[in-house]
Write a protein that binds this DNA or RNA. Structure first.
Lengths: 166, 166
DNA sequence: CTTGATCTTCAACAGGACTTGAAGTCGAGG
DNA sequence: CCTCGACTTCAAGTCCTGTTGAAGATCAAG
């Protein structure tokens, strides 16, 4: 169904329509998330449907989902046509689940922390959350008891948190 | 109140008790989150209360709170004594609030996304979440309508992905 | 005093998602 | 044809939280 060659967009056009920088568009292409054809002069020309892909990328970004994951779900997408409702269904379900898990984790931490505010750990000793590791040091290394293996992950959220800004 | 000089810990000791790497201890000191005295031979010697500070840092880390924020709350802490219950109260309340906000944001996204799964955006056009920015491009740059001002922030957060895991 | 463990500093790397800059090319209007 | 803005590539920088390595000093025990 691609009929008119008119539908080809330059990188600047795509960037403008998607509301991102041209550098980002090129970056996404480098990452294999979108693709383009070239003019005789070696300039990129995108088909319209890259805009939908970029929308998906931006949704993922807001959700705090890494590009690698986006790349993964994109492998199931047809390269030559618009992703359809079925595709979006599949992807949104998958991401909603990830979101749910992340929220649950946050809820757990929140409960722990607020529980601790009013709790009995008056002297701060043996508090579950604080877990000084001083008197308790003998039990083995450090206060990681609450987040078993995944400690590394949370990291910045910053982004995700959506908070901070570039 | 500091009586015995016996209470001075080397970097290795602190690391072991806190359950982190010595490099991390030095890093925290570089960042001004903890402090030390030096022996005549220029080696670090920490007072016991740095362990509590490190505990706070680790809690923050689990919460996905950046070190810069930790540094901020630390400015209100006395340098020469153990942080007390009052301090911990203040800090935990503050962090709990941030957590709450983060969770709320996630819930909002989740609702949006799951709402979208079963919703009427059959053709994916004019979907709130997807918001192609194609037909709608005229309204100004891009699909950032849902995250009013902060869109740029997410940036790397490598960690941020927060979620996803390192 | 010697040995070996621990310590010192400083620089560089990791990785995620981009941005910025340099140096040069293309395309469209006049 | 000229010019200017938009485009090209590639390298390097940014932010964050550390880790790793190199080269050398110090500490505690024997």
């Amino acid at each position: 169904m691609d009929t008119a060659p008119v539908d080809l967009l330059s990188v600047g056009e795509v960037a403008r329509r998607a509301g991102i920088a041209t550098s980002a568009v090129r970056f996404y292409e480098d990452q294999g998330l979108i693709s383009s054809e070239r003019t005789t002069g070696n300039q990129r020309r995108y088909r319209r449907h890259v805009l939908r892909r970029i929308s998906l990328i931006l949704v993922a970004k807001r959700l705090g989902i890494p590009l690698s994951e986006v790349a993964e779900v994109f492998t199931g997408l047809p390269e030559d046509r618009m992703p359809g409702k079925h595709d979006w269904d599949r992807i949104s379900r998958r991401w909603a689940e990830q979101l749910r898990a992340r929220r649950a984790e946050l809820e757990r931490l929140e409960a722990e922390l607020t529980g601790c505010i009013g709790c009995g750990c008056v002297s701060l000793r043996r508090c579950r959350v604080l877990n000084p590791g001083d008197e308790l040091a003998a039990e083995g290394p450090g206060p990681r008891r609450l987040l078993p293996g995944t400690a590394g992950e949370a990291s910045a959220a910053g982004g995700a948190g959506g908070a901070a800004g570039a």
